[in-house]
Computed example of a mutant assay.
Amino acid sequence: MTEKPKPNLLVLVGPTAVGKTKMSIKLAKAFGCEIISGDSMQVYRGMDIGTAKISTDEMEGVPHHLIDIHDPDYPYSVAEFQEQSERLIREITERGNLPFIVGGTGLYIESVCYGFQFSKASVDEEFRQSHFKFAEEHGAQAVHQKLAEVDPKSAERLHPNDLRRVIRALEVFHLTGVRLSDQLALQKKESPYHLCLVGLTMDRQMLYKRIEERIDIMLGQGLVKEVSGLLAKGYAPELVSMQGLGYKEIVSYLQGEYSYEEAVQLLKRDTRRFAKRQLSWFRRMKDIEWVDVTDSENFPANYEKIHGIIAGKFLSNLEYTSKQSN
């Protein structure tokens, strides 16, 4: 019996502000793609500016999935992202289009690319609540330090403000005696898909400059008003969504913990650090073909290079090669 061929899956990753959105639209139009957002924050409605969410106009008619699917108080998880992405990949493939994941949330994207298995059984609600209470009394950094003592690799991967995931990593160790980082390391690294993984990178100082410019644009677009509006609707600062970059810093400003200038500088610093962690995560992934887009002004050359990588990977599929010539 002939083995059924693996579905094709195109993936574009890279740090924040590297230029994934513009590149993804041109590639999607060339290869007949539907885009699945690989961003854990863009799932939330009403969180547009701080997540650099693509607008309808910017989509240029390319179908996008997993954007604006939940309110900010919904506890979105990697397991849910994986389940939804696997369903979407099947449906997009059945429509004769190419599934295309675009984003920067490393664990989410890797979980789909390599079919990670997530435990749904082990939960200790009392343990969780005791650690949330500990965080209220001693701060998120103190909980993160607990994780660093038992699972330094997970602590390195998770930001102290990502309290829910930090506590989950502690909970996994508490229940199983096995570190979450060790469990992830044991995951099978063979993909259920015919993968084409492309990573965008650029000179670090250039990237940092772009990050700071993007934040200035977000502030000009009304980031403070967006965050203030979310608080006014009753979304608590402790929510995972409100702990996201661009939200927790502005919340701190609005609550009087920092001046506006201090909050902006904190946001720029935290975003630079986040981009560094994104690059570290993706560089540990296998199969990624990296394209240096430091010369961002030369978009056509960068596009042609990536187009060639994708065409080479999916060349045997006449359906996609015919769309390239359009």
Rank of each mutant, 00 (worst) to 15 (best):
K133G: 04
E110F: 06
L207D: 01
E137Q: 15
V198A: 04
L186N: 09
A155F: 04
S111D: 12
I67T: 06
L66E: 06
I250T: 11
D203C: 10
S241V: 13
L12E: 02
Y74L: 12
Q183G: 06
Q187A: 13
V62D: 07
L267N: 00
D292H: 09
M242K: 03
Y260Q: 14
R164S: 11
F118P: 00
W290S: 11
V150G: 04
M1G: 14
Y208V: 01
G244V: 03
A311Y: 10
Q183C: 08
F100H: 07
L66T: 03
Y108V: 05
E149D: 15
H70L: 14
S85Q: 08
S122I: 13
P7Q: 12
G14C: 06
K313I: 07
L318D: 00
S37R: 11
S37V: 10
R273C: 08
K188V: 09
G103R: 03
R277N: 09
D287W: 06
P237K: 03
Y260K: 15
F100L: 06
F274K: 04
T201C: 11
S122R: 13
S322P: 00
A232Q: 03
V11W: 03
F314P: 10
V198I: 12
E110V: 04
M218V: 01
L231G: 02
L163C: 09
S280I: 13
C33K: 01
D203L: 12
L12F: 02
N298K: 13
Q117W: 09
V43N: 03
M23H: 05
R90K: 15
L231S: 05
S111V: 07
L195F: 06
L195R: 00
L27T: 02
S85P: 01
A148G: 03
T176E: 06
I250S: 09
A311H: 11
I89M: 09
E319R: 12
R283E: 13
Q221K: 15
K22R: 14
H64C: 05
F31K: 05
H70K: 15
I89H: 03
A263F: 05
E238N: 04
H194W: 08
E212Y: 03
T176L: 04
G246S: 12
M41R: 14
